[in-house]
């Protein structure tokens, strides 16, 4: 962002600067966003912009680390060494994405520890999709193809997000996600063209993951609470329904190539709209999972908390050792 660089705004700007100054900063910020310039950590920004970004990046980071669980569920049972290597690499990438995104949130003054506490105590959320179980090996493919596919559809526009560190993190995340999606598609293709049992496994997985994947774009535009302001700030570039439609249109021909069907009798091409029409989404299920009643909400957060609590002594040891080491260095200096 080309406008006046301010110190990181830990002090409330509205008391430090006069009301007139704040108005000037705000209009410079608005102009920068309108001109598609990037906002950087040291630039002045409205508090609400900052808190919206921290919330969104944290939720995204949390989704990456919770999202490791359903796939890690199959690492020890992957049916070939090649698939095992791909899956391990994918789960490792997700941990890496979590790291970039927590770091990006830290550029706005948040701390990873604090964000993790908020996840563990339920004050911050992660994507509801990970509250569904991975029941068969084909679910690994369905997650790659559909869940990562939906995530990419959501995330590609974030590479042009107005906040620089988030946009740059997303460029890297999207590259890796597109590899994830391809491996999911390829895994399902191998199953679909495999034995009848493998084909049935693939179809069953797609049947279970299709509707939850459509829900990943969030509630219909009319009911989405954060959308409008985020669009103005160019944190969000497209509406939930636009992105959902884009995803459906991409998936239909891919499902055909896979030799699998999508579980929606109302799915058909609409010549007039130039898009596929699709059936009604069961938003009752969406809200119910969001409220904590999904098949795995309890399990996912319990495992996350347990890993964190059981790892406390390790983190304490690392901190104690680092302190001792720096004291030793000072003593010898």
């Amino acid at each position: 962002m080309a406008t006046a660089h301010q110190p990181p705004s830990t002090a409330p700007h509205h008391t430090a600067a006069g009301a007139a100054d704040t108005a000037a900063l705000e209009s410079a910020f608005d102009a920068a966003v309108a001109a598609d310039e990037r906002i950087e950590p040291r630039d002045w920004m409205p508090d609400a912009y900052r808190s919206t970004l921290v919330r969104q990046m944290a939720q995204h980071a949390h989704s990456e680390i919770i999202g490791m669980q359903p796939e890690a569920n199959w690492i020890t049972r992957a049916p070939s060494l090649r698939r095992k290597a791909i899956l391990m690499a994918k789960v490792q990438d997700e941990a890496g994405h979590g790291l970039y995104l927590y770091s990006a949130a830290e550029t706005l003054g948040a701390s990873r520890d604090d964000l993790l506490d908020k996840l563990h105590s339920g004050r911050q959320k992660y994507s509801s999709i990970f509250n569904y179980p991975t029941l068969t090996w084909a679910d690994v493919g369905a997650i790659g193809w559909l869940v990562d596919g939906a995530a990419i559809t959501n995330q590609v526009p974030l590479c042009r997000c107005s906040y620089g560190p988030y946009a740059r993190a997303m460029v890297r995340v999207c590259k890796e996600e597109s590899f994830h999606q391809r491996q999911g598609y390829e895994l399902l293709l191998a199953l679909s063209r495999g034995t009848p049992a493998q084909h049935a496994m693939a179809q069953d997985a797609v049947d279970r993951w299709w509707w939850p994947s459509l829900m990943m774009f969030g509630p219909p535009d009319a009911e989405s609470s954060h959308s409008e302001q985020s669009m103005t700030w160019k944190i969000k570039r497209h509406s939930n329904d636009e992105l959902r439609q884009r995803f459906v249109d991409i998936c239909v021909p891919q499902a055909e190539s896979l030799g699998l069907t999508l579980p929606d009798p109302d799915l058909r091409w609409n010549e007039e709209r130039g898009h596929h029409d699709f059936g009604a989404i069961d938003w009752t299920e969406f809200w119910s999972v969001l409220k904590g009643n999904g098949p795995c909400n309890e399990q996912r957060i319990t495992q996350r908390r347990r890993a964190h609590e059981e790892g406390a002594w390790v983190r304490e040891a690392a901190a104690a050792y680092a302190t001792k080491n720096s004291e030793r260095k000072e003593a010898t200096a």
Binding site: I65, M68, Q69, A72, I75, T76, L81, R82, K84, A85, M88, A89, V91, Q92, A95, G96, G98, L99, Y102, R112, Q303, R306, A307, H308, E310, G311, A312, V314, R315, A318
Partner: peptide, 28 residues
């Protein structure tokens, strides 16, 4: 690989998976 999702800190999720992947590559 059994550590995935259970490591004490995020950096170790990455490190342990990295070592597991190297070893799996050697094994193959």
């Amino acid at each position: 690989g059994e550590w995935a999702g259970h490591a004490p800190v995020l950096e170790e999720e990455v490190a342990l998976a990295n070592i597991a992947l190297d070893l799996l590559g050697q094994a193959r």
